[in-house]
């Protein structure tokens, strides 16, 4: 289930919980759980917008920009995908 989720994300990198749920034939809540676990175990990583590190003195830009958070599959995640 976790590996499948990760693989599906790689296949459709811009996804919604619903599109993954439909694909994996589980509920959206389950997809949410899987994403959380994948992040917790370090297979998937959320990219904190780096300009939010508060070291930008000239400006301040919205860092709560929740709708635009991207992720990456970590090397650990890539390894998992290629070994499974």
């Amino acid at each position: 289930m976790l590996v499948e989720t990760l693989r599906e994300i790689k296949r459709q990198p811009i996804f919604s919980k619903k599109s993954l749920a439909d694909k994996l034939n589980v509920s959206e809540d389950m997809v949410g759980n899987a994403l959380e676990q994948l992040k917790r175990m370090g297979y998937l990583e959320e990219e904190k917008p780096s300009h939010c590190s508060r070291n930008c003195k000239f400006c301040s830009f919205n860092c709560s920009s929740s709708s635009l958070n991207t992720m990456v599959i970590t090397p650990k995640g890539e390894k998992l995908l290629s070994s499974n």
Binding site: I14, K17, S64, S65, S66, S67, N69, V72
Partner: peptide
């Protein structure tokens, strides 16, 4: 490629808009 979750649409919160 890049990975991003498309969140469901929602009513914008006044707080976030104001903060932005």
């Amino acid at each position: 490629y890049f990975i991003m979750e498309l969140p469901p649409y929602r009513l914008p919160s006044f707080r976030n808009v104001l903060r932005n």
